[in-house]
Write a protein that binds this DNA or RNA. Structure first.
Length: 320
DNA sequence: TAGGCCATCTGGTCCT
DNA sequence: AGGACCAGATGGCCTA
């Protein structure tokens, strides 16, 4: 009794392995292990079980699509036929969403963030925002490396690598966001007023209304509403500006980000909002920029309109 | 208890 | 024709 009947359907998996991963995940789920898929949710839903039971008994019907039928045709079909078609469609949709979740988990795995049984996984929106900022940050790092290479070899080669990207340590994002406000404190090893608190960022100020990030002092305690702004990748000026511009809903969404376990391990006295386990090295150490938005703000890409749109939509979704 | 997050159901639309 | 994709609705679970 599992959703194997759903997996038998041919579909467009997000990757060639998705089907296999999905099956494995479903096995785990069936055995009570909250694995990669739906780890925060219990999958033992009575209606699903009912669906699956029905599916196993109605496996043979043709894949007529219910929505393709006219109302007249629908009336001609028996209750059982309609139900079996509906179940089949539901099953496909379920599998599709499972595949999406598997992909989302795959994304979580490669993000510089907590993975562990004691750490609640990132929400979907947080995962996407984090991924985006991570990509921006990596791109920025790459550009910086290119720039350094061109500086080193430029005198000989005449500067073959043309990179015009420089760090903007203090640039205000949209809506009065100023990520630079907390940068010095973070990279300077703490000190400075606030240590990333109240950050001056729309989202951050929502979550940290003035307290010195007490959540980071707690071992194995998660404060989803507290840590989001502390994570460098989620506090990028871009995401922040979008959040502060779009709606309180998105800000609320962003607050769902869970902390990196490293952020929780030790006091934050001298390490800024990331905690002492996170080592900021700014841009001075070997020229490599610190992979956090505090030490290195990604170059401001042209504000993609679709991002703003999707963000606003997410905001509206989250405000349901 | 409220709010956030999520899975699922459902009907519509688009694509092959 | 059939499947994928999408978005709204709904209800459950969890946490503050």
């Amino acid at each position: 009794m599992d959703s194997d009947s759903t997996s038998r359907h041919v579909s467009r998996p997000t990757s060639p392995d998705v089907e296999r991963i999905f099956l494995a995940a479903m096995k785990k789920t069936v055995h009570g292990f909250s694995g990669a898929v739906s780890s925060t949710q219990g999958d033992s839903r009575a209606d699903i079980a009912a669906d699956l039971r029905s599916l196993s008994s109605n496996d043979d019907d043709d894949a007529l699509s219910l929505r393709m039928l006219s109302k007249k045709d629908r009336k001609l079909l028996s209750e059982n036929e309609l139900q079996s078609i509906r179940l089949k469609i539901n099953s496909r949709e379920r599998k599709r969403m499972h595949d999406l979740n598997v992909a989302m988990d795959g994304l979580r795995e490669v993000m510089p963030y907590a993975h562990g049984p004691s750490v609640r996984k990132l929400s979907k929106i947080a995962t996407l925002l984090l991924a985006r900022n991570y990509i921006l940050m990596l791109s920025s790092s790459l550009e910086e490396m290119k720039r350094l290479v061109s500086e080193i070899y430029g005198s000989r080669d005449g500067g073959g690598v043309g990179v015009g990207v420089h760090h903007h340590h203090a640039h205000g994002g949209g809506g009065g966001v100023g990520s630079g406000a907390f940068h010095p404190a973070a990279c300077g090893g703490g000190g400075g007023g606030g240590v990333g608190v109240g950050v001056g960022v729309g989202v951050g100020s929502l979550a940290h209304p003035g307290a010195p990030l007490p959540g980071h002092h707690h071992h194995h305690h998660h404060h989803p509403a507290v840590h989001h702004a502390a994570h460098p990748l989620l506090s990028s000026p871009h995401a922040v500006s979008a959040a502060s511009l779009s709606a309180p809903g998105l800000a609320a969404v962003v607050t769902s980000v869970r902390p990196h376990p490293g952020l929780l391990k030790s006091p934050v006295s001298s390490a800024g909002p990331l905690g002492s386990s996170f080592h900021h090295w700014g841009v001075s150490a070997g020229g490599m920029p610190c992979p956090c938005s505090m030490c290195q703000v990604p170059p401001p890409p042209p504000p993609p309109p679709h991002v703003a749109m999707s963000l606003s939509r997410l905001a509206s979704d989250s405000s349901k």
